[in-house]
Every structure is written in C-alpha cells, then in structure tokens.
Design a protein around this nucleic acid. Structure first.
Lengths: 214, 214
DNA sequence: TAACATAGAATGAGCGTTCAATCTAGAATA
DNA sequence: TATTCTAGATTGAACGCTCATTCTATGTTA
C-alpha cells in the first residue's frame, strides 16, 4: 500500500497478488453457492474489481475452478508429505493423524472439498487434477504404511498395502461428510476413535492369514 | 395399460407416475450437471414433457432437489434398517457391510450422493433433510453396535457407542470419495480390508481402558 | 507516447417461471 | 346414438432476469 520503494511491487508480483485476490474471492463464493451457483459478477464484487477485469487473469470460469481445485489439493499433498517426513514411527503417524482429523472436521473447508469431488464426478478436467493428486497421495501413504508394517515384522504385497491405504483414506475423507451430516458430533471422541482405528488398521493380518479369518 | 377396468389408472396413480418420471429425469440431469448446472429445460426434455408441465407437479426447482435428496436418503435408511433387522450377530453385520461397500463404490450413485452432501453444506433446506436422516441412521447403528458390544462383554457409555458409529459412517461415506478420486481401485481388496476394519472397530477398547492406551 | 491496468456497458444465450391456449376424454344431455 | 359440455392434462411461447464473456473507453505509469 506504500510506494516509498523504487519498485514497491513488480508487475509480476502485482499480477500474482491480483490472481490470488480473485482465487480468494472465488473460494468464498464457491463455498457459499457451489461452482455453478457462484457467478463472475459475485466473485468480481468480492474481489473488488470489475467482471471484465477477471478475464485478464483467467481465461474463463472453468480455469478459476481448476485453479481452486489445484490449490485445495496442494494443501492435501502438503499434509501427506508431512506424514511421510515425520519419523516413520507408528506413534508419530497417529499423532499427526489427529491434527488431520481436526482439519477435516472444519465444516467450511469440508463444503468446498466435497464440492470439488462432486465436480470431479462429472467434469473431466477437474477429475484429472483430482486423480493425479490422489495418485501422489497414495504413493506417499503406501511408503509410510509399508515402512511401519515392515518394522512390525509383516511382509505385505503392494496390493495389500494399497488396500490399507484406501481404508485410511476412507477414514479421513469420510470425516468431510460426517461434519456436515452430523454438525453436532463430538470432535474429541471421534478423533480418539479414529486414532484407534488407524492403529488397528496398521495391525491388520497379512494376506496369508487373511483367507482363514472370516 | 388396458382399460377393461372402470378406472384403469386413477388420477392419483397417474400423477404419481408422472412425478416419478420427472424425478428420474432430474436424477440423471443432476448426476451429469449438478443441481445448479441442470436446467428445467433439460429435465423436461428427458422426462418427455414440456417445461411448463413440470410446475404442475413441483412448486419449483428447489422442490425437485428436495425430493431427490429425500429419495436418496430413503434408500440409505433402508440399508440401515437392514443392518438392524439382520440377526444381531457380528458375522451377519460384517457380511451385510460387504454389500453396502459394493453399493457405495458405484461411481454413478456416488456422484449424486456427494452432490447432495455438498449442497447440504450451503442449502439449509437440504441440510435439514440430510441431518434428520442422519439422526435416524445413527440411532439404528448405535443399537446394532450396542447389542454386539454387550454380547462381547463390553459396557460402553452412549458417547462411546456414538464415537464408534461415527467411525463406521466414515468408512462407508469415505468410499463415495474413493471411487471418484481413485476410479481404478481394487474393489474386492478394499471390501476385504473394510470388513476387517469394521471387525476391529467392534473390538475397540472401552472407555476405562482408553486413557492408558496411547 | 507506448503499454498495460481497469472499468463498465453491451451482447446474446440461457435461466426459472408464468400463463393463455389447446388438447383429450369422460359425463351429461338430447 | 350423436352431440355438447366440462375439467384436467399439456403445451410452448413469452417474461424478466442473470449468466459468462467481449468490447470499447478511460486511467495510469514509465
């Protein structure tokens, strides 16, 4: 806001800021009205610029949607990377998981994340972004789970690990829906039970023992 | 289709059929374009009637959305009731669960279900329908889980049971997202691992033992 | 001056919704 | 039986509005 500097903000950084300003406004509108219910007029009003000006930074509305989706998934990838970076110890994973659970239980964020998956179910461009991010997430989680299992003396096939990754993902992604379907849920109790479920998941029998189980 | 009767099809049943015709077309449109992307014109075209005629059966578009939501949740309630009706034995629950898992993994159905939850996050009318259905589901599941736990010798507080219900719900609802985020997942393997996870869930320690666990 | 940032009106398409007009088929009448 | 009446089913054009997008004109800055 000050211009005492020789070049307070370069063209590039100014443009980036404008872009972010639009994305921020768009995220809010998409949360409140959905991708198709939010109009360029509303987004531009909240972003504090004219509708036409939006088109200097984004080709069209779908490009804004794609950017929002990519931005949201980036935060997911960060979280997954944190799982991996944490020393590969069971306790550390489970502790980090608690933070993840709490984050998933924020209803505002949940609304947008669900909107994204719903859109992915019908919009190929969004589907591609989502699918590619999911591949990365699964790869990371498979490494973490594989590590822990190996330390516990298990010898699992990749397919077995993949199955566990899917269940772990179910637990986290299911929370997005729970916080909307049951807004009054007891966050602490749920976090506790999810932690136990993850612990149990990491203890599931290997494939050989699997056939004889049920 | 024959009119040998005095009144082959009453006004009421004909109207009900027309209503269902509209709902069927609407479900398809909503799946393909989302609640806001689907237009009355498209719905009426698929339903095989004029746009104006739709308004003889539904007050407005939101009423159609509400009806679709209610219809979808009704099938959920049926599934939950089946859980309860099945003899309250662990094995029976887990076997039924497998059917539920498969059903949740159908990508077409998943798209509409996710659209509904996303809409519930911002549309109070839809939120109310969803919340009320969820209360019923949780009540039923709590009874089933409570029964099983009691037979296994556990004494749980209602809050503890509620926590387990939430985790069970996470597993099922998470599948809706998994089938879209990872369309190539191995359905059999996932079903197997989910079954084990549910079995473990029903074996989680009670509250007294909980503090000393991690 | 040259180049870019920005505004805001203009455009044409499509939206949800309404409504007067038409069709249809059984009841009433002759 | 032949004709008219009637009420609901159904149509499709029209309405007012909002949409995404484009275009032209006006700052602004270097």
């Amino acid at each position: 806001m000050q211009n005492t500097d020789t070049t307070p903000s370069t063209d590039a950084s100014r443009a980036a800021a404008r872009r972010q300003q639009i994305l921020c406004a768009a995220a809010r509108c998409f949360r409140e009205h959905g991708f198709h219910g939010a109009s360029i007029a509303k987004i531009s009003a909240i972003a504090g610029m004219s509708p036409g000006h939006i088109y200097h930074y984004f080709e069209n509305k779908e490009a804004i949607i794609a950017a929002i989706v990519a931005q949201d998934l980036e935060s997911l990838l960060e979280m997954t990377a944190q799982f991996r970076a944490a020393c590969n110890v069971r306790a550390a994973l489970i502790e980090r998981a608690a933070e993840g659970v709490v984050r998933q239980l924020d209803p505002d964020a949940a609304g947008l994340k669900l909107e994204i998956v719903a859109e992915a179910a019908r919009n190929p461009r969004v589907a591609q972004i989502v699918n590619e991010a999911d591949i990365i997430c699964r790869r990371e989680l498979a490494i973490v789970i594989g590590d822990i299992r190996r330390r516990s003396g298990h010898q699992d096939s990749p397919a077995a690990i993949d199955g566990m990754v899917e269940v772990l993902a179910c637990l986290f992604e299911g929370l997005l829906q729970r916080t909307i379907r049951n807004p009054g849920l007891d966050r602490d109790k749920v976090t506790q039970r999810i932690q136990i479920a993850i612990d149990d998941l990491l203890n599931q029998p290997g494939e050989d023992a699997l056939a004889a189980r049920p």
